[in-house]
Design a protein around this nucleic acid. Structure first.
Lengths: 208, 208
DNA sequence: ACTGTCATGTAAAACGTTACATGATTCT
DNA sequence: AGAATCATGTAACGTTTTACATGACAGT
């Protein structure tokens, strides 16, 4: 159901086609809520059917047309209702922690390799979050710019600050993950030795 | 697919019935991977069909029987293969951050209420994680105790330390969330004032 | 007899992923 | 002419949630 509200959130800045949305999505909302194109188009159709969106056919080139969606009053009301409704706490679901709890079943070499991959992923993710945060601070982020163009300076300040706040949370989370991964390297070194592939006490009984 | 490996992980400590598993689940693995009973029983059947588990019928009371599952060699091999295979990075999917980015669409009062609920949830979750971590440190955690009973002291040390490591990560994450929530309170106070329900600049144009 | 725990699911719907499928337009 | 981008999906499959459903056993 959050996909629906992520789409409304984007469409409050300006009307967009499904294609625009799927592009904007990957540049902003996807950082908090990933969705592929194949989920976006059908959801847009359902939202229009449910009266949350209207669409206008816009000519495109000589023969083609595209559908530009905009949020209806009902859609905006629904979005506000969701925004003010209590959040159901997220269920934990993270394979990385599940694996970490059972690292003793894997080779130290495999453990280190996974930690390296996780570190690479989170470092890249963090860099992207910080870059995006910077475009919010200087208000050059396209979706944000489109949104605040319609607002007073004071309202714009609110919109910007909350977006920065969300990214600060994501950045803090990424840093926490990276610190945990570094602890993982230290732990493997301590338990298995920095060079040996296996701890000296390791026997087959623990592995079969 | 992680449900399957979470179940094997639990069953490596001792054979269990579906009921045992669903109880153990909520006391340990559910902290990293939630699953309801209705998902566990069918998955166990599929895993037995796939040769990852064997089951023996155990009499229960006068007439009843129950099925006790244990991991097969194929199951253990599959688990290890998964343990050593690269992790696909998790897609971000967190409604809390999506909402936070659009807090300007909600009443400050509603925002504060949601922050309070989130804080209550994470404080409780953190307390549970710390309590569980303590039972790992003193080795009184039932599933862990069953597991390490079969291991040498040195192997047990490995198993225990990695589990503590996983909980340390979850605890760090919970603290990061709580710090972010506190920042949220401070931000709402700054932008909307500590007592007023709305920022002075607020007009209808930003809300419809 | 009643309550709580043990025991095991089914069914339907919602949600999400992956692969496939097609064609027009714009830029170089 | 070819490549990149714009545009819009369908189909099949797998996962997850929610609600429902049933009954035996153990302790008071």
């Amino acid at each position: 159901m959050s996909l629906r509200y992520a789409l409304i959130a984007l469409l409050t800045s300006r009307p967009m086609t499904g294609y625009d949305l799927s592009k904007s999505f990957s540049r902003s909302v996807a950082h908090v809520w990933h969705a592929p194109d194949s989920q976006i188009y059908p959801e847009l159709n359902r939202m229009e059917r449910d009266g949350l969106l209207d669409s206008v056919e816009v000519p495109w080139g000589k023969k083609g047309t595209k559908k530009e969606y905009h949020v209806t009053d009902a859609g905006l009301a629904d979005f506000r209702k969701w925004m003010e409704s209590p959040l159901v706490p997220q269920r934990q679901r993270d394979p990385a922690y599940l694996k970490a709890a059972y690292f003793d079943f894997a080779d130290p070499a495999a453990v280190r390799e996974q930690l390296r991959q996780q570190r690479a992923y989170w470092e890249e993710h963090l860099a992207m979050l910080e870059a995006t945060r910077a475009t919010l601070v200087d208000r050059s982020h396209p979706t944000l710019a489109a949104r605040i163009a319609k607002l007073s300076e004071c309202e714009a300040e609110l919109a910007v600050r909350y977006k920065i706040y969300a990214y600060d949370g994501l950045i803090a989370r990424a840093r926490t993950e990276l610190a945990w991964i570094e602890d993982g390297f230290a732990l493997v070194d301590e338990l298995c030795g920095p060079t040996r592939e296996r701890p000296s006490c390791r026997s087959d009984s623990a592995r079969g």
